[in-house]
Simulated assay, not measured.
Amino acid sequence: MPVPVNPFKQALSAGETVFGCWLGLADTFSAELMGTAGFDWLLIDGEHAPNDLRSILAQLQVLAASPSHPIVRVPVGETYLMKQMLDAGAQTVLVPMVESAEQARQLVRDVTYPPHGDRGVGYSLTRAARFSRITDYGTTADAQICLLLQVENRKGMAALDDILAVEGVDGVFIGPADLAADMGHMGNAQHPDVQAAIMDALRRIKAAGKAPGILSTRDEMTNDALAAGAQFVAVGADVLLLSQYAQALARKWIPRD
């Protein structure tokens, strides 16, 4: 019995565009709620949200009943973390701050079983293999793992073409906030120089045969990214949705001086 098909990876391979939302509340109840909203994918954030292995596992479990595909962003691209997230059942992972082809190649090895990779072979104990029920997990898992790399500073952008040449990378996500900061425009990802760099990168990613990704909460930027070839596009974050609506509701009913 082989592993289930990864619908997110399948969609990217077919050239489809899929829309998602960030999950930063680090809570199973809110994750389950977001799973009913209709997004193609939801990203469980292990970098900037208060998540750990157990909270990420719990969110993977509740999203299993959802039509939204779960993506896990690890806090850093360390081999042991990649192993833990994959064994917990994540089929798609996003790795932040990728700056070189060498780093990209190691990440490919991290998500690949021997003899071609370094992923530990202990799947009989894991949720990923349905606790030994997926008998062919070891021979079929690699093909369904989707590796997304996040390029988000000038060093990474300078190495982008080399990163794109690494076989086994499925997509590259451009991080607007960190890139803006590294370019000297902290808090202003809309600066023309930052936007030009982002759109150029998305076009290069697409031309290299990889799937380009972006997070944008502004319709104008989202449309520009789509025109540049973006395929996996986050259009919001649960934290922002709750915070912004709560503030607007409070302003509506509570007078301010």
Rank of each mutant, 00 (worst) to 15 (best):
Ala246Gln: 15
Ala104Ile: 02
Leu147Cys: 06
Ile254Ala: 02
Pro50Gly: 13
Val62Leu: 06
Asp178Phe: 14
Gln150Trp: 14
Gly229Ile: 00
Gly184Ser: 03
Gly24Pro: 13
Thr222Tyr: 04
Ala225Gln: 08
Gln59Asn: 11
Val95His: 04
Arg203Thr: 08
Gly236Ser: 10
Leu149Thr: 01
Leu63Tyr: 02
Ser216Pro: 10
Asp118Asn: 10
Phe173Asp: 03
Gly24Ser: 13
Gln84Ala: 15
Thr17His: 07
Gly20Lys: 04
Ile198Lys: 04
Leu60Glu: 00
Gln195Cys: 03
Ile254Leu: 07
Pro75Ser: 05
Leu164Gly: 00
Val111Gln: 08
Trp41Phe: 15
Gly209Trp: 11
Ala180Tyr: 11
Tyr245Arg: 14
Asn153Ala: 07
Pro255Leu: 07
Trp41His: 15
Lys9Val: 04
Pro192Asn: 07
Met183Tyr: 03
Gln244Ser: 12
Asp110Glu: 05
Gly138Trp: 02
Ala31Ser: 06
Leu33Pro: 13
Pro2Ile: 06
Thr139Val: 03
Gln59Cys: 06
Pro114Arg: 05
Ala250Phe: 09
Gly46Leu: 08
Ala227Pro: 01
Lys206Gln: 15
Ile56Asn: 12
Ser55Glu: 13
Ala165Gln: 04
Leu86Met: 13
Ala246Glu: 09
Ala197Tyr: 10
Gly171His: 04
Thr17Gly: 01
Gly24Gln: 12
Gln231Pro: 08
Val18His: 05
Arg127Val: 08
Val74Leu: 15
Val76Trp: 15
Arg127Ser: 10
Arg54Thr: 15
Pro115Tyr: 03
Phe19Cys: 07
Val169Asp: 11
Ala159Asp: 09
Asp219Leu: 08
Ala141Gln: 10
Gly15Gln: 00
Thr222Val: 10
Leu63His: 13
Gly38Val: 00
Val98Pro: 14
Pro2Phe: 10
Val62Arg: 00
Ile205Phe: 11
Val74Tyr: 07
Arg256Gly: 14
Val18Met: 01
Gln61Phe: 01
Arg251Pro: 11
Val72Trp: 08
Ser55Gly: 12
Gly229Ser: 02
Gly117Leu: 00
Arg251Tyr: 09
Phe232Tyr: 14
Pro255Ile: 04
Asp162Gln: 15
Arg133Trp: 01
Thr140Val: 03
Ile163Phe: 00
Leu53Cys: 05
His191Ile: 11
Asp110Thr: 02
Ala228Phe: 01
Leu53Thr: 05
Tyr245Phe: 15
Ala88Lys: 01
Pro192Ile: 00
Lys155Ile: 08
Asp193Asn: 02
Asp170Lys: 06
Tyr123Asn: 09
Val169His: 11
Ala88Leu: 12
Asp193Gln: 06
Asp118Met: 13
Arg133Gln: 09
Thr139Lys: 13
Met85Ser: 12
Gly38Lys: 02
Gly20Met: 02
Phe8Trp: 07
Val239His: 11
Leu53Val: 12
Leu240Phe: 13
Glu167Gly: 07
Gln247Cys: 07
Val3His: 03
Ile254Pro: 12
Gly46Glu: 04
Ala201Phe: 03
Lys210Ile: 10
Leu202Lys: 11
Gly209Cys: 02
Asp142Gln: 00
Ala158Trp: 03
Lys83Ile: 06
Ile134Ala: 08
Gly175Cys: 05
Cys146Arg: 07
Trp22Tyr: 06
Gln84Thr: 10
Phe131Arg: 03
Gln59Val: 04
Ala246His: 09
Arg130Met: 05
Val233Met: 12
Pro176Gln: 06
Gln103Glu: 09
Gly35Gln: 00
Glu220Gly: 05
Ile174Val: 15
